[in-house]
Write a protein that binds this DNA or RNA. Structure first.
Lengths: 348, 348
DNA sequence: CCTAATATGCTCAATTTGAGTATAAGTGAG
DNA sequence: CTCACTTATACTCAAATTGAGCATATTAGG
């Protein structure tokens, strides 16, 4: 119908690898589209969609990742399409829920913005993809880096127990945020969201709710992006540790990590991230790195071995620091045998 | 970069309800965009994205569903963005994999189309949403219908045991398709896909693989859409029973059903589809309707009751045909207590 | 009062988990 | 060469979950 402002469509890639037991994501430095002054920020690889280009979006994505990062992608899946207006320049209102809600949502009473967000400017739609790669298969060009995922989302790494920053930063800040709610109803709602999201006040920690946590922190003004999008200079002391990203890319990263954590349980995606031959401990470390929790070694072995996910090669790896470990490979036939072959984390 | 052809963006809604123990989807009759002659077909509600319109895509969607179908949506979640070129007019080549792959994909060697699909025509991106509704909350306007989901995907309903059409149509047709592969490698691959998808040759049936099954049938030329998109008039005798839809809307429906089936297991989405008060058998019937399998009554009750998902109201429903059944309601607190509250189907 | 239909309570064995204990097979220091 | 230490791998055991079925309760209708 309307034809005036036009719509720009781009593709983003969250490319994840695990090296040295650390999940990493491919980023590049560039001017932050959401920053009024265009200061440099970490960004996810991005490319415009050429309407006359490749036949599928996925091919387009593979193509420019190949060019831009000299990287051949293996597993790729579509993550989410981000398309809220003002998402790159916008000003979410206090108390209003953010737009992108990959996990599904019930309606909320949304107060109409008092000043309508800028019309006339082009609307940008970003189709974000998740890709899994074996890192360092390639040398990254200048400006392209494999950054640690948990540098951006430090509260997600619970492998050494609940991170210290929970008690030092998160919980006090969240409590302040809860208390500062306008009404009793809103306070209860904030309390619930914080409890469910961060496993506080008696709720269990649910590793998959990565996006929920990021959005909560954003909504509470505890990440720099929130201040940036509202045109406020935040007091650094009020911010939760964690490296920001440009535009809404940290939201995309959170979406990706949540997706991986969910999927690892019922699809054999881990094997995209380990070399073709691996010891069971190596495999376990990768799963732990992604899920952010430590696992019981013997049970992990039982699960993965008796579940038919792997098979021994007969070869052994000897520089383990102890008894040599057998090398295993992914057993592809499991796809035919079991309905949902994954590695089953605790609480599944 | 390129600016010539331009990109059109639209929103599609797969609106699902369950009435009389049958899952239904809201459709309307209209000219099929993929049919060269524009013949009428069943279509999902669709609306263009107005770049200057609502702040979020979801609000836009809710808005025109309200107008077009006089329906107020409850739960809404983004499904997938379909954006392959030629998807509404196109001609996937024999043996080539379809573009949209919500479940994630490894690269495939794709033979480049011999005749490049038509350039210059606008590329259409459709962001598809899943919405759950309590049917008949509204009177549908003319041309809008609640159709049975299993009219479009009859092979998905296994509540009365494996549907008869498996042996009468599907298996023989699939076997022909497998045999007609060009190479041994391709034959094995087809066989595997059929086995995993439809639970043949010793594999288990996996209810969630709805999209995989539809795409397999499409690729095998067993649904009318395949012939339509290739410009071939198919022999009706070679087609699997099941009502077609216009454009790629049946693919969207399949994506939606798969998503619901997956999600019902770890999120309390069923409660969106039943009235606020319900008997446990009613609830069970809805779960069965969506998942396409029968469940053990006593175990279902145990799961849902002792899992804290529901609580009795003290009221009773008496026209059950037997002993009156207690009415239950959804226990919202479960969200705070359990990590993944769903109804757990067999084989979870 | 008897029969059919549905609801609801309870049992029981088979599996699956969570958490250890025990033993094997390497390394490097002394 | 032996000991201390490290990692790998094999087993055990109790608790929890699941799949399947039996038994009893409560209604309606002849």
């Amino acid at each position: 119908m309307s034809d005036q402002p036009r719509i720009d469509v781009g593709l983003n890639a969250v490319i994840v690898a695990v090296t040295d037991e650390r999940p990493r994501v491919l980023t590049l430095r560039g001017p932050d589209p959401a920053d009024p002054e265009g200061r440099a920020a970490d960004l996810l690889p991005y490319g415009p969609l050429d309407p006359g280009g490749d036949r599928t979006l996925e091919l387009t994505l593979r193509g420019w990742v190949r060019n831009q990062a000299r990287l051949e992608l293996g597993y790729v899946e579509q993550l989410y399409t981000f398309g809220d207006r003002g998402r790159l320049k916008g000003q979410p209102l206090e108390g209003e829920r953010l737009g992108a809600e990959p996990s599904g949502a019930w309606p909320r009473e949304t107060r109409p913005p008092e000043a309508q967000p800028p019309e006339g400017e082009p609307r940008t739609l970003s189709v974000a993809y998740l890709a899994l790669a074996r890192e360092r298969a390639s040398r990254t060009p200048a400006g392209v880096h494999w950054q640690e995922v948990y540098a951006y989302l430090p509260w997600e790494d619970g492998r050494k127990g609940r991170p210290e920053l929970f008690d030092r930063f998160l919980v006090p800040r969240l409590e302040t945020w809860i208390r500062s709610a306008g009404s009793r109803r809103e306070r209860d709602e904030r309390r619930d969201r914080a409890a469910v999201g961060f496993g506080l006040f008696g709720s269990d920690w649910d590793g998959d709710r990565v996006l929920e946590r990021y959005e909560l922190l954003y909504g509470a003004g505890l990440v720099p992006e929130a201040g940036r999008d509202r045109g406020i200079t935040s007091d650094a002391g009020d911010l939760v540790p964690g490296r920001p990203m440009g535009a809404d890319h940290r939201r995309m990263l959170a979406t990706a990590l949540g997706r991986i954590r969910g999927k690892i349980r019922y699809r054999p995606v881990v094997f995209e991230l380990v070399p073709p031959h691996f010891t069971l401990l190596q495999l376990q470390r990768v799963v732990e790195a992604l899920s952010g929790v430590r696992l019981h070694k013997q049970n992990f072995r039982r699960l993965v071995e008796r579940g038919g996910l792997v098979e021994g090669t007969g070869d052994y790896e000897s520089d383990t620091g102890g008894r040599p470990a057998e090398l295993f490979r992914f057993r592809r036939e499991v796809l035919r045998e079991r309905r949902a072959p994954g590695v089953g984390l605790p609480g599944a």
